Amino acid sequence: MTDRIILVTGATGAQGGATVDALLGTGFRVRALVRDPSAPGASALAARGVELYQGDFDDRETLAAAADGAWGVFSVQLPPTPGDLESEVRTGRHLIEAARQAGVEVFVHTSVARAGEQTQFVDWDAGRWWPDYWNAKSGVNDLVRQAGFPHWVILKPAFMMDNFIKPKAAYMFPGLARGAMETAMKPDTRLDLIAATDIGRFAAAAFADPARFDGREIDLAAESLTMTQVAEVLSAASGKPVVARSMKGADARAAGVMPGLVESQQWATVEGYKVDLDRANGHGIALERFADWAARRRDRIEIGAA
């Protein structure tokens, strides 16, 4: 495997970074697509032996250069934005096309649990649940299936544990600055949780044994917790009290939760990720429980006074 190059996109982010962590030291050569090689995150990758290629998903020439010679590709794209609703599918297509033209053997793509099931969601026909998000996720998945890679895998993680720590927690859960887990989820709603590190470990396993994972779409969640249980774990890890507050949508927005996140939390109550936890934990890759993850990340958990 020392001659096999894995191109990792999103390498300075949570999932791509976790994939780099899992791949380094395994014998693969790791290459990262970065926008600015001089940025601190990119420089840190280079210091660890990662080969940097400057490029952009919308720059086909730089994508082709980054994919050239790669044996495998880890694929992750940003969700669409109100100003560019086609961005995720477009950039996903550009990466897939570059990988196919380069003769990539193994393509591992990360999506989200339940992508492809969105038309079954309650009130889908009424336009709820940010259709552009779900259609983009399932659209890229379709492109991966149809691309003709010798081996491909689609990982479908549920809610990322990393959303509870900085920098994401500041806007995902602004109430933590007041010592409160304030959401528009009902008290008995359980949220399926997965650590980014485990997504990276699954990706590395797929590259190490592509025949085993070939053509599989794998839902990922380690466990399912209520917000009260989440608050208890964060409190234990940080040593500071955290309370869980279930709020109506309007009240959550008034408390500083962004409207899109409020709708996502309401979706978690009405629909949810519905990951089969036994199956997710049955691949021979031990998934990290939230309490263990939080204990490792305690220095990045920021809790204010209630």
Rank of each mutant, 00 (worst) to 15 (best):
A65K: 15
P40N: 14
L33N: 03
L63D: 03
R48S: 05
E51D: 04
A42W: 04
R60C: 05
D56L: 12
L33Q: 06
D58Q: 14
V50E: 00
A70R: 05
D56N: 15
A64C: 04
R48E: 02
D58Y: 10
R35Q: 10
E61H: 12
P37N: 11
L33Y: 10
A70P: 02
F57T: 09
R31D: 01
Y53F: 15
A70H: 06
R35D: 04
A46L: 00
L52G: 04
A39T: 09
A44F: 10
G69E: 01
F57W: 03
A47R: 12
D59S: 04
V50A: 03
A44T: 12
E61N: 13
P40R: 14
P40I: 11
D36E: 11
A42S: 15
D56K: 10
D59I: 02
S43F: 00
R60E: 14
S38C: 09
D36C: 01
G41Y: 07
A46W: 02
R60K: 14
L45D: 08
E61P: 05
P37A: 09
D59W: 06
Y53W: 12
A39I: 08
Y53K: 13
L45T: 08
D36A: 08
A39S: 15
T62L: 02
G69P: 07
A47K: 13
G69D: 09
A65T: 13
V34N: 10
A67G: 04
T62W: 08
A67E: 09
R60D: 14
A44P: 06
A67F: 04
E61Q: 15
L63Y: 01
G55L: 00
G49E: 03
R35H: 12
A46G: 00
D58P: 02
A44N: 14
L63F: 04
D58E: 15
